[in-house]
Amino acid sequence: MSETSGWPRRIASGAATLFTTTILAGSAAIAFGAISARRFGIRYETMSLLPAGHAPLRIVHLGDMHLVAHDRQKIEFVRGLAALEPDLVINTGDNPGGIDAVDSVLEALEPLLHIPGVFVPGSNDFYGPRPMNPLRYLRAPSAMDSAEELRETIDVATMFRTFTETGNWHRVGNQTHTLQIREDLKINFSGTHDAHMQADAWPGFDHTDPPAQLNIAVTHAPYRRVLDTAIADGADCVFAGHTHGGQIALPRYGAIVSNCDLPTGLASSLFPWRAGGRTGLVNVTAGIGTSPTVPLRTFCPPEAVVVDLVAAN
């Protein structure tokens, strides 16, 4: 028998082994991503931005819940954030994960709605999810196009009305608002509507007397144009979400994409940003949820962020 007569059999066997290995590796990766997406945690940060002598101020920053209806584990995690005794809540949008999830979002946030807060919208506060190829994100940021007109809409009016009816939360999408947090602490907030929807219009800060001790900018998607404008206009810090921290990250490399023009290395972190001759801080949360069509996270755990503002030395 020729020495080459067994090659087809060996090739077929090798191909079958490779196929089986690939399937097993893919299944393991999906299982890992699904488990990781449910490991909700808290990232703690400190910003030395308050004037000397001021008592610390605790902020809970949450965003990108993408909460599907009746997700008890996520609902209880969000409700539990009130036990951290924040002085202020900042919500950077994309709360529901479906058109039927508004009641679940309101249940999750209910304890936090009794604490002073501000919020801005993301596109998923208005539109339900639509199927898409997740590999699109590897080519370029997802685009808002005419297909949005065909998506089912969320009852955003009820959701946002409930956010504000206690009088504690204030919407700052393309608006500015001033909060007197304590007798000795006045904070100016300015925010934008979702820059990913090309709906952002920077409103500027309120510079009336007496001046605020702190200027905070809030936006859903941290596009560089928004960060540049906010910092140059006097923002001491900016809070944003949208990126999911890349959602599918690689070990020792990090995020592959940010779904906007922010460098991937900044997709979920606290970092300085310089614009207009000024430097401010930016906090981008990786968010609590996932894309509803790709409910996986790898090496990028879901998070809420606790930021303790303290007096500068």
Rank of each mutant, 00 (worst) to 15 (best):
A69F: 00
H207Q: 06
I59N: 03
V307A: 02
A249I: 05
Q175F: 04
L50H: 10
I23K: 01
F40P: 07
I75M: 03
E45K: 14
A217H: 00
L49I: 15
F205L: 12
D64S: 05
H220N: 14
A55M: 11
I99E: 09
H70D: 12
D233A: 14
A286P: 10
P251E: 09
D103H: 14
A147K: 11
W7T: 15
T208E: 11
S258V: 02
E85H: 15
A267R: 10
T192V: 15
P141A: 04
G265I: 07
T164S: 14
F40W: 14
G26Y: 00
Y137H: 07
V306M: 02
H54A: 13
D236Q: 08
H114L: 09
V172S: 03
I90R: 02
C300W: 05
G277H: 13
P211Q: 08
A28D: 02
S123K: 09
A31P: 00
G122C: 07
L179Y: 09
L24N: 00
P131Q: 01
Y44W: 11
T158F: 00
R278Q: 12
L227Y: 00
A240N: 06
D233E: 09
H61R: 06
T219H: 00
S5W: 08
E303L: 05
V89M: 08
W273Q: 06
E183M: 04
M1G: 12
N133D: 14
A249C: 15
L250S: 07
R139Y: 04
P96C: 11
M47Q: 14
E3T: 15
R139A: 12
V257M: 04
V238T: 07
A101F: 01
L227P: 08
G128L: 07
P141S: 04
A15Q: 03
G41K: 13
M159N: 04
A34P: 00
I35L: 15
T279D: 02
I75N: 01
L262K: 01
G265S: 09
V294K: 02
G289Q: 06
T22Q: 02
D64T: 03
R252M: 13
D200G: 05
R171G: 02
V257P: 07
R38P: 05
L281A: 05
R9W: 08
R58P: 06
I23F: 04
S146F: 10
G245N: 14
P111Q: 14
V282G: 06
T20P: 00
A240V: 09
V156E: 00
F126H: 06
E3R: 15
F163M: 03
F205W: 07
N188T: 13
V78D: 01
V105T: 12
G191R: 03
H114W: 10
G117F: 01
L50P: 08
F163P: 08
R224I: 05
P272M: 05
H242E: 06
T298L: 15
I75E: 07
T285Y: 10
A249M: 06
T92Q: 11
